[in-house]
C-alpha cells in the first residue's frame, strides 16, 4: 500500500513544537513554575530554603496533596468530585470518634474510617454509573449529605489530641532525612503517588481510565467496560480519601467536623495547576503533586514575604486561570 503520510507535510513552527511538547508531557509547565517559584522565594528570603521551613511546606501540602490524588483519578475520567473534603472529614470523624468515645480499638477505628471513605466513594460511583447523573451534580449533592452526616454523627464536637491514641496521630510523627523533618503523612502521600503513577502508566486499568475520560463512547466500542471503570475509580478515590483522613488527624492532632471544607476546591486547584485537563483523558499524577507543591510554596513564600493572606488566595486564583488557559491552548491544536 502506498504511503499515507506524504500528503501531509510537516508544518511545525517553534510555537507549535512547544505546544506538542506540553501536550505530550503535561507535567512540564507545573515543574517549571515550581522551580522558578522556589528560586524566587529563596532569593527573596533566606528563611524560605531553611530545612525547618521546607519541612513545614511538605507537611502543609500532605493533606491536600493526598486528597488531590483521588481528585485526579476522577478528573481523568472527565468527572469532578466536589465531595472529597466532606468525605474526608466524615472518615476522619468516624476514626476519631469511634476510637475516643466508643472505645473501639485504634486499628479497628482506622478500618471503620476506611470503610466510611470507600462507602462514600461507592455512593458517588453508583449514582454516576447507575443513575447516569453528571458527576458535578452527584458530588454537589453528596457534599451536603456527607457534611450533614458528619455533624449528625458528632453533634459538631471536635475530638482533641489528648483524646486520640498514638495510632491515630501516627501520621503526624516525624523522622529526620538529611536534616529535614519528614512526617509519616508525607511519606504515605509519596508512596500513594508512586503506587497510582504505576497503576495509571503500567496497567490496563490505568489505560482504561484515560480512554474513558478521553472519549467514553469510543472506549465502550473498543471493549472497555466503562461503568466498571468509572465505579472503580470512585471506590479507589474513596479509599484514598480515607487515608487522607488519617493524615489530617496526625497533621492537626485533632479531628474537627468543621475544618477542611476548603479541601473540596483546593484539591481541584492542585489538579488543575498540575496540568490535568478538566475535560478528562489528559494529565499525569506527578503534575498533581507539583500542583499541590506550587500552591504550598506560593502560600508559604508570600507569607514569609510579609504579604497579607488575601494575596496568597489571589495568587492561587490567578494560577488556576492561567493553568486552564494553557490547557485550552494545548487542546485547541488537536481539535
Amino acid at each position: 500500500m502506498t504511503d499515507l503520510s506524504s500528503a501531509f507535510a510537516d508544518r511545525s513552527t517553534p510555537l507549535s513544537r512547544v505546544r506538542d511538547l506540553l501536550h505530550r508531557y503535561p507535567a512540564i509547565s507545573p515543574a517549571v513554575v515550581l522551580v522558578v517559584a522556589v528560586l524566587v522565594f529563596g532569593l527573596l528570603n533566606d528563611r524560605f530554603l531553611a530545612p525547618a521551613n521546607l519541612s513545614l511546606i511538605t507537611q502543609q501540602v500532605a493533606v491536600v496533596g493526598t486528597l488531590a490524588i483521588a481528585q485526579t483519578l476522577v478528573i481523568l475520567t472527565a468527572g469532578i468530585d466536589l465531595s472529597v473534603g466532606a468525605a474526608m472529614i466524615l472518615a476522619a470523624m468516624v476514626m476519631a470518634q469511634s476510637a475516643s468515645s466508643s472505645g473501639v480499638p485504634p486499628v479497628l477505628a482506622l478500618v471503620l474510617g476506611l470503610a466510611a471513605g470507600i462507602a462514600a466513594g461507592a455512593l458517588n460511583g453508583l449514582l454516576v454509573t447507575r443513575l447516569k447523573l453528571p458527576p458535578f451534580i452527584v458530588t454537589l449533592g453528596t457534599l451536603s449529605i456527607f457534611t450533614a452526616l458528619t455533624l449528625l454523627y458528632t453533634d459538631g464536637n471536635t475530638v482533641r489530641g489528648s483524646q486520640l491514641s498514638s495510632t491515630l496521630t501516627f501520621t503526624g510523627d516525624t523522622l529526620s532525612v538529611l536534616g529535614i523533618k519528614i512526617s509519616v503523612g508525607v511519606l504515605i502521600m509519596l508512596a500513594l503517588y508512586v503506587l497510582i503513577a504505576y497503576v495509571l502508566k503500567r496497567t490496563a486499568w490505568g489505560r482504561h481510565v484515560y480512554a474513558v475520560g478521553d472519549d467514553k463512547e469510543a472506549a465502550r466500542l473498543s471493549g472497555v467496560r466503562v461503568n466498571r471503570v468509572l465505579a472503580s475509580v470512585y471506590l479507589v478515590a474513596g479509599a484514598i480519601i480515607a487515608i487522607t483522613a488519617w493524615i489530617q488527624i496526625g497533621r492537626t492532632n485533632a479531628a474537627s467536623p468543621n475544618s477542611g471544607l476548603d479541601l473540596n476546591l483546593d484539591s481541584i486547584t492542585a489538579v488543575v495547576i498540575g496540568g490535568t485537563s478538566l475535560f478528562g483523558g489528559r494529565g499525569v499524577i506527578w503534575g498533581t503533586l507539583l500542583g499541590a507543591l506550587i500552591v504550598g510554596v506560593f502560600r508559604n513564600g508570600l507569607a514569609l514575604a510579609g504579604l497579607d493572606v488575601l494575596y496568597q488566595t489571589l495568587t492561587v486564583g490567578v494560577l488556576v486561570i492561567v493553568a486552564v488557559a494553557v490547557d485550552q491552548w494545548i487542546r485547541k491544536a488537536k481539535s
Binding site: 490496563a204 478521553d214 473498543s222 471493549g223 472497555v224
Partner: peptide
Amino acid sequence: TVYQTLAVSPALDVAANLFLGREVR
C-alpha cells in the same frame, strides 16, 4: 467493527489503541 466515529482514543498512542480492551500483560 470500524465505526463511523472511528472509536479511537485520541490521547492514547497507536499501539495502545490497537490493544485497547485486550491489553496483554
